[in-house]
Design a protein around this nucleic acid. Sequence first.
DNA 1: ATGACTCAGGAACTGAGA
Length: 261
Amino acid sequence: MRIATWNVNSVRQRLDHLLAWLQERAPDIVCLQEIKCVDEAFPREPIEALGYHVETHGQKTFNGVALLSKIRLDHHSRGLDGDDGDLHARFIDGEVSHRGGALRVACLYLPNGNPPDTEKYPYKIKWMERLSDYARKQLKDEQPLVLAGDFNVIPSADDVYNPAAWAGDALFLPKTRERFRALLDLGFTDAIRAATDAPGQYTFWDYQGGAWPKNNGIRIDHLLLSPQAADRLVAAGIDRHVRGWEKASDHVPVWIDLDLG
DNA sequence: ATGACTCAGGAACTGAGA
């Protein structure tokens, strides 16, 4: 079972890239973020033509997430519990059946939080605590669970080209990393870090300042695995070559392979 | 200066992103 996440920065601008990458990487389940359109405007047909079921949680102009799955979803749900006043479309989860049981995948687009001295930062921190509440509840099922998405968190200094330049940024502030660590400490495994300790496993390069040719990247797109999923991890990778495509998203796809029997 | 970011919305710019 191959599961991937990709912040496409507008699914309509990136449709050709998405279709090419789906055929190249052949994932079974895909979590998309920043689709930047309402559900009715999502380009379902060409994706369905490649064999995917499509569930979206869209929003006009900003945010928006989607789940693509070659296996029919038994259940799915839009939105993250814990704040009825939060209208941002940043979360969708679904469950599929496999030979050994059930697999749950949560697709998330965690708030950026910049600038940190505005209301955007406490919104991010609260959102992280809501995500931990969700994770804590789901872990009680003791089944394979994958939290996949754009976390907007740089976990460590090995995950950024110049840590000093990011010291005051909402993606790298100590409080942000503490909350991410608290989520991991519930029992999750960071899939890329289970595969390699090497620095420079970047998933995002800014459009500005020649960040891509200079390899000024950061690692902010993650797949976090419950113990039952981590036990079945056989491979993890980052498709960084996609960043070199013409008119690319600023994020690249990240994927894992699970052996679910 | 040999160069300077990309998206949506909507028709010149702004806000958001990270």
